[in-house]
Structure formats: C-alpha cells, structure tokens
Amino acid sequence: MQKSFGCHEYNLFNSEETVDGMQPLFWSGVMIHDSEPIGVWKAKSGRYANIKAAIKAVEELEGMAPYEFRAKFGCDCREETINEIEKDGTA
C-alpha cells in the first residue's frame, strides 16, 4: 500500500461470529481510509482469515493506477507527505 500507492491509512480488521453450539467463524478484511472493506474473508481460524483477506485485497488492487486508487478511496496521503516536506524544508 505504501510503496505502490503512497497510502498510510489502512488496516486489517478482525471479527468473530459465534452461533450457539457451533465453532466460531472469524472475519477479516482490509479497510482503507474508512471506506468499505475489501478482501473480506471468513474462516474457522483467525490466522487463515487474515492471510486470505490480505491476499484477496492485493488481488483486488492489482493493476489499479495510483490515481484510480486515490479517487476510489479518497486517499491524499502522498500529497500530505509532499506538502509536509515542502513546509519543513527537509528532504
């Protein structure tokens, strides 16, 4: 995310769903700038749900141009970083 799109505001979320008498299901997904989650996956293990969600999110972003990413997720992280450097005078 940071390398390809310059985005710093993303995270992996986790949730657990338990139905009486059944094994819990774990939900995972990637949130970018508080938008709709991408790469959402559920599994019987939180570990596998996280891995699969991350892989699925990467697949969804693959081939997307940086300007498309910024428009879709409302990302202005890279611009903030450039502006901060200009204000600071350091590079």
Rank of each mutant, 00 (worst) to 15 (best):
E68R: 07
G89D: 08
Y10E: 05
L12V: 12
A54F: 05
K44I: 07
G89I: 04
N50M: 05
A53E: 06
E9V: 06
T81S: 15
K56R: 07
L12A: 02
C77V: 02
D88A: 14
F73I: 01
S45Q: 10
S15Y: 11
A57L: 03
E60N: 13
E84S: 13
W27H: 14
G63H: 07
R78W: 01
V19D: 12
W27V: 15
T90H: 08
H33C: 12
G29L: 03
K72M: 05
E17C: 13
G74K: 04
W27A: 13
L61Q: 02
W41Y: 13
E68Q: 14
R70L: 01
E79L: 08
T90E: 08
I51Q: 13
P37K: 05
N50E: 15
E86H: 14
H8V: 01
M1E: 02
K42I: 08
W27T: 13
Q2G: 11
T18H: 11
E60D: 11
D76A: 05
A53N: 04
W41I: 09
F13H: 11
I55Q: 14
I32V: 15
S35G: 14
I51F: 08
S28W: 02
K56Y: 06
R47H: 12
I51G: 06
N83T: 12
D88L: 14
N11D: 10
N83G: 09
K52T: 08
N50T: 06
N11I: 06
V30P: 01
E17K: 10
K72L: 11
G74P: 03
M64F: 03
C75D: 01
A49M: 12
Y67M: 08
E36F: 08
S4W: 04
S28F: 04
F26V: 04
H33I: 02
E16M: 13
C7R: 00
A71V: 05
A54I: 09
N11V: 06
K44N: 12
G6Y: 00
S28T: 12
I55C: 09
K56F: 03
V40P: 02
I32W: 01
F73C: 00
G74E: 04
W27N: 12
G89N: 03
G21Q: 05
T81K: 11
A65R: 15
E59C: 05
K56C: 06
E9N: 11
S4R: 06
Q2S: 08
R70W: 05
S4K: 07
N14I: 09
I85Y: 10
R78I: 00
V40Q: 14
K72T: 09
T18E: 15
S4V: 03
E36Y: 08
S28E: 08
S15M: 10
C75K: 00
N50A: 12
E84P: 00
K87Y: 05
E80M: 11
V19P: 04
S45T: 13
A57W: 01
A43S: 15
K87P: 03
S28K: 09
H8P: 00
G63M: 06
D20F: 14
M64G: 04
F69Q: 02
M1S: 03
H33W: 07
T90I: 07
V30W: 02
V19H: 15
A71S: 13
M64D: 06
K87M: 10
K42T: 07
R70F: 01
A43F: 09
G89C: 04
M31L: 15
C7P: 00
R78P: 00
C77Q: 01
N11F: 14
G39T: 12
G74I: 03
L12E: 04
V30A: 03
V58A: 12
W27K: 11
I82Q: 09
E9F: 07
